[in-house]
Computed example of a mutant assay.
Amino acid sequence: MCISQQIKQPTYTLLKSYELPVVVAAGEYERACRSLTLHQLDPAKFSPGASKGGHKDALIAMYDQRMQLGRPGRPVYEEARNRKGKCPICDVGRVRQVDHHLPKSVYPFLAAVPINLLPICGDCNREKLDKAPTCYAEQALHPYFDDMESDRWLRAELITINAAGEPYEIKPSEIAEDWRIEFRVDPPSSWDEQQEERVKHHFSQTYKLNEMYEDQAADDIPGLELALEEVFEVGGAQGVRAHLEGIARTRAHRNKNSWMVALYEALAEHSWFCSGGFRQIAAG
């Protein structure tokens, strides 16, 4: 599609000569995605030789130029972008862009391969760097091939801070000097060490989802005060706990590893928060 029209003959001839290598590369890429061996792919086999000046740029331009609005490859771009409404990486931002799972600068044969094109939000796209995975843990999760919803692996914790700036276990009657929410990967015991390290790398290093979720939580919690105050007047701390647990269960029907599921469960487990600490957090 990308070279089907609106193209000069020399460029067409050049790109046509790479049709078979691109198809072969796409097959090897898909097999590596399914076998979790992307880190074993040799970038040299996914790019023209160094002696072929300009060929790499021409292949990358199939995405950069020939998938622009009004160009012949645009339907492929639109199909990739419209696969999801919410970003499949963070489940927070709206999909606005398309990103390459393996970077086109390193793997130019994959620049226009549809299964290497992911719908993504602007924040996640900015965090991900054009870096090839060099080990198992560095393989970012792929929305088309990795099923990460079968197991519960995302947890959160409300941490209260004392006057010395240290985390401590606050009593329900005390006033916290400060507080924060921390998100972490906490997989089931059935996971092996490699799987755990891979998800942790994806979560905290490739996309920095822990930081994104902490910002989301800091914005979300103060807005709970009115609803929690009404629940507290009727059912006290236990009523607040049950209310938060109910929200978490509802959210988990769609995505058990949603940041909101982890957040509301963490709040429900925290005695100080349920006993009135929510007022202090709302007050800033």
Rank of each mutant, 00 (worst) to 15 (best):
C2T: 09
C2N: 12
C2Q: 11
K8Y: 00
T11N: 15
Y12P: 03
T13W: 05
V22L: 14
A26Y: 04
L38R: 04
L38Y: 01
L41Y: 01
D42S: 12
P43L: 07
G54N: 08
R66A: 08
R66D: 08
P75D: 15
V76I: 11
Y77V: 06
E79I: 12
C87N: 00
R96A: 15
D99R: 01
H101Q: 07
L102G: 05
S105A: 14
A112E: 11
V113W: 08
G122K: 00
R126G: 15
D130W: 10
P133I: 04
T134V: 13
T134C: 10
Y136D: 04
Y136S: 04
P143C: 09
F145P: 06
D147E: 10
E157W: 08
I159M: 12
P167V: 06
I170S: 04
K171C: 14
S173L: 14
E174I: 08
E177C: 13
H202F: 05
D215H: 08
D219Q: 12
L224K: 10
F232H: 14
E233L: 14
V234R: 14
V240Y: 07
L244G: 05
L244Y: 01
E245P: 04
A252C: 06
R254N: 13
V261L: 11
L263T: 11
S271P: 11
G276Q: 05
